[in-house]
Structure formats: structure tokens, C-alpha cells
Design a binder for these strands. Structure first.
Ligand SMILES: [Zn+2]
Ligand SMILES: [Zn+2]
Ligand SMILES: [Zn+2]
Ligand SMILES: [Zn+2]
Lengths: 136, 136
DNA sequence: GGAAGTGGTGTTATATTATTACATACTTTC
DNA sequence: GAAAGTATGTAATAATATAACACCACTTCC
């Protein structure tokens, strides 16, 4: 079994990551703050600083169109390429996937343009299968 | 795609669209508000309401990762499919393009998943050709 | 040992982005 | 004209994010 060295998380980072993992879906920074008040969190910066690191480590993704954050859905958050997200506007469910062919095409575009790509945001908004089939 | 006849703009919509066109790049809602104070704008809602309509008409795009808005770069804002944006983090330049093959692949993914797609966000962050070649 | 550097934390205050709520006016439709 | 729909103006507030400063723990280097 290949063990990717997970970074050693600080107390606050571990608390924030735990909140997101337990939630099983996206949370805003302020929602995390409220969840962690009983753990001693008092200010938004405590959340944002932890999130910055977790995003840097690839363990958490930021959803730009929601201003929210979600734990990476991959087991152990093994490193993976750019992720895309399908966000259901009815139930709030978020599906993460890695559209490698899409990424490849976008990279080709950037190379043709001389654009140096740092990071890519792909977010699909719509209605998930369950919510479509539900009458309400 | 949806056929948008070029709609008749109201006074406020025309002012907001003019600001974005003149800017030639992305502006935040509050930057637009400041530009239009001399035209009688007093409150953010005047901007946001106009932007809502302009986005609906397809004449303006929202850049989720910037919380900003940009006039569609297509002449006369002719109808086009989902757009993607390459955003230079040095100079702020935004290039709009329509990666049809990428959109096609993403649609295939949503169809396989039973996800009903409403809208798609694709934003590339990085450094444009000019800023890479510049020493500073 | 001690200085300097680095990274995490705590706290207050503030900046930035977006919406709610309510009132007024005008137009279209019946 | 009444009703419905759309655009507007204004004040207040909500939601999201950062700046500034202080303190502590640890390491590195002399
Ligand atoms: Zn992931
Ligand atoms: Zn759903
Ligand atoms: Zn466009
Ligand atoms: Zn540039």
C-alpha cells in the first residue's frame, strides 16, 4: 500500500478538517466557525487560516460559486489533478470528479496562448439525479 | 443554445453595461457603483439589479473566482455557448473563450450521471503571455 | 547561551461583497 | 380603472474576507 505522507495537521487545521469531513458536504467558513465555537474558536481568522493550509495541502477544495469549502472526496485525499464539481442547487449535494480529458484540452489551450496555468476552477450548477426524479 | 434577442436596456442597465464595456476588463459591483455615482447611483442594489439582468441576457459574465463582472467579449454579445475565462493574476487581464470540446465532454459526464446542467463555470488562474515575458 | 527567523495562535477591528425590506412609480393587460 | 408586472430609490443589514498587532513555541545559526 502506497502511503502518501499526509501533512501533520495543527490542532486548528485538524478541527476544521474534521468539521468538513463530518459534514460530508460544503460548509462556509462561518458555518465552520459556529461548529467550532465549542472547541474554543472565536474568530473567522482561525477558520480561514486553517482553510488556507488545508487547501494548499489539497485536502480541502474551495467552491468559488458557493463561497464554501468541501473536504476532498478522495480516500485519504491522495494527490490528484484538477477536480471538477457538480453542485445540486436543490439538495446542495456536491460530486467531485476529475475530468482528465477536459483538463488536457484546457492545458492545450493555455499552452497555445502562452498562458501559464496556476489553477483551474470547474463548477457545474444544476440538479442531481435524485432531485430530478423526486416529485418535490 | 438559448436565443437572446438583444434586449432593450433600461437606463440603469445601460449605465452599468457602459461602465463594463468602457473598463475593458472585470469590475466589482462596488467599483461600478463608484463609477456611476456621478450618474445618480447611490446604492449597491442599483448595480446588482442591473447586473442580474445583464447576466441573464448574456451580455455580462460573472467571474466567480473574482467576485467581479465583465462585459461579454463577443461583438454585439452574439449568443454563444458556455464561456471560459483565463484570468491573469499579475495584470488582471481576462480572456474569454468558448471551449466547445470541453463543454461537450462535461455534458457527456452530466448525462451519464443524470445531472441536469443549468450553468457551467470554467475559470483559469495564472499568468498571461505578456506578464510572463515581462521582467517585471 | 542568545539572536534571529519561522510558523501557529488569539483578538480586535475593519473591509468587501451581497441581500432584505419597504416604498414609489410607471406600463401593460384585462 | 383595477390588477399585475417591472423598474426604481433608499435604508438597513447580512454574509464573506482581511488587516493589524501581540504572543508563544520552536529552530537555526553564530
Ligand atoms: Zn479532491
Ligand atoms: Zn439534489
Ligand atoms: Zn461571452
Ligand atoms: Zn498579465
Amino acid at each position: 500500500m502506497i502511503a502518501h505522507a499526509q501533512p501533520e495537521l495543527t490542532k486548528n487545521q485538524a478541527l476544521v478538517f474534521g468539521s468538513l469531513s463530518d459534514a460530508g458536504g460544503p460548509l462556509t467558513a462561518y458555518a465552520i466557525l459556529d461548529l467550532l465555537r465549542e472547541n474554543g474558536f472565536r474568530a473567522p481568522l482561525q477558520v480561514y487560516r486553517a482553510l488556507d493550509k488545508l487547501v494548499e495541502y489539497g485536502m480541502v477544495h474551495r467552491l468559488e460559486s458557493l463561497n464554501a469549502f468541501v473536504a476532498c472526496s478522495h480516500k485519504g485525499c491522495a494527490e490528484h489533478g484538477t477536480a471538477a464539481f457538480a453542485i445540486c442547487e436543490i439538495c446542495g449535494d456536491v460530486s467531485e470528479f476529475t475530468p482528465d480529458e477536459v483538463i488536457k484540452l484546457l492545458k492545450e489551450w493555455t499552452q497555445a496562448e502562452g498562458f501559464t496555468l496556476a489553477r483551474t476552477t470547474i463548477e457545474l450548477r444544476g440538479t442531481c439525479r435524485d432531485c430530478i426524479s423526486q416529485p418535490n
